[in-house]
Write a protein that binds this DNA or RNA. Structure first.
Lengths: 147, 147
DNA sequence: CGTAGATTGATGCATGTGCATCTATATCTG
DNA sequence: CAGATATAGATGCACATGCATCAATCTACG
């Protein structure tokens, strides 16, 4: 019989990661919602689509990037298209696929959301850590995996 | 005009907290589900109910403990009751409320889930950090707030 | 070339969540 | 004590998510 593998210290760290992660995320999302903005997933998707520019991005790439299930991405894109922030173009090279491209309205939404998002990150997260602490936290989180 | 407040380091730390938190949590939940177990929220609620013992716990206390919205706790408890893991008793002192108490079946579920949960924590989280790193991570996460 | 299997993306259906609201009881104020 | 307000908990309805599956196309292999 092997010993219980994660130590108490590790288990506490795990509990805090989940708990604080969810707690702080909920606070930040709450600030965005209170300002009348859509969920963070919209921001993340649009950010990535802006990053790749006018050549656009295939849904399956985006979904891999964002760790989202395929059907969730399909529907998130539906909503973004319906809201006018993204255009869905037939893919030239692959008859199955589509190419998603951010619209002017999408870029504008990113610009409007960022100040609120930035302030929320500061308020609920960054302001509680020194620069050194943030760097250490960042490094440790990076060690958790390939994400 | 004040400077953009969170530094780049802090913003990266934020992004990793959210991303790795969700990623690792999904892996752990995936292991539980693959073993035929219910979601972690069930485990957390039952754990707390076991901790307080036979005197039971009021839903609003549990919901505060678990950072869950009121209606979500109400429905989570519905499911736990329907599954036979929890009993709902009328509260003696407060005519509005109820008292939730874990059942034998609930205790048994906790016992069956823990080995799988523990192994998943180890596999996806703890095994990637030294003891010192886990302690540091834990301390930094604790600084994030009152949770 | 032609078929088998893999991949992209969508969707019907059941379940879960958010929001608003409701009921019932408790507490506070005069 | 009466009435106003606050709190515990449930629930109808809209929307989001998970699961399974499907259609269409691509790729690989004979």
């Amino acid at each position: 019989m092997t010993e219980p593998l994660p130590s108490d210290v590790a288990i506490t760290a795990w509990a805090r990661l989940v708990r604080q992660g969810q707690r702080v995320l909920a606070l930040v999302e709450g600030d965005l919602k209170a300002a009348g903005f859509p969920p963070l997933a919209w921001y993340d998707a649009l950010l990535e689509l802006r990053r790749v520019g006018d050549k656009g991005l295939r849904p399956y790439r985006l979904q891999r990037e964002m760790l989202l299930a395929q059907y969730n991405m399909s529907r998130l894109l539906d909503r973004l298209v319906r809201a006018g922030h993204v255009e869905r173009l037939p893919s030239a090279e692959d008859g199955r696929g589509t190419l998603m491209r951010i619209s002017a309205s999408g870029r504008e939404l990113l610009d409007r959301m960022w100040p609120v998002y930035r302030a929320a990150i500061d308020r609920h997260f960054a302001s509680r850590l020194s620069e050194t602490e943030a760097a250490t936290l960042s490094r440790l989180l990076a060690r958790l995996g390939d994400g």
